[in-house]
Amino acid sequence: MRKEIPLAIAFVTGFVVLLEYFFLPAVPASKAWATMLQQWGIVVSGFAMFVAATNLVLVNVKKMDPKRNKEWYNPVLLLVFMFGMAFIGLFVGERTATYQFLFTKMYQPLGTAMFALMVFFIASAAQRAFRAKSVEAALLLAAGIIVMLGRAPVGELAGSWLPNLTNWIMNFPNVAGNRAIMMGAALGATATAFRALVGIDRSYLGVD
């Protein structure tokens, strides 16, 4: 029963959502059923957050021992801020100045700073990737240079051929490659979903 009940739930849920997607005019009630199941999904995800938060606490409490972890203060900070934000959000209120301060003056700038770091990672990866060590790498390098120059205002100084070549690369080889990948990925996703729906693929239950 440990396997059968989740498989039955997955089948019924998938079937109802497909019914609503394809046969809404024939089965108008399917919209309400699908909406209800999606709402249940949100509730289940809410409970999953407790499971995930429990794991986070368990892992980090173990790391708080100064004898075993030189950076013991990091998990302490994590848990203080995690429980602090949760407490303020739940009992003081999300609209209060304290919560807004923590969110807009601490959380958001930290996220933005992380995003800004991306430029260094891109530069470092580009330095490794754009080495003409093989024919494929040389093609990547050439295409990268053309597209970067063609997209920059300085590219127009070389004449209209560079932006035109850039547009050709973006509109033809790039789109063709993207569509091939998308078609393969969509079919792969369909097959994975179908296997899960009919219970052939049980990897999401931890069994195979």
Partner: peptide, 11 residues
């Protein structure tokens, strides 16, 4: 993703 946690743990 919180709802991936129990699945990954079980796997």
């Amino acid at each position: 993703a919180p709802n991936v946690q129990p699945v990954a743990e079980e796997i």
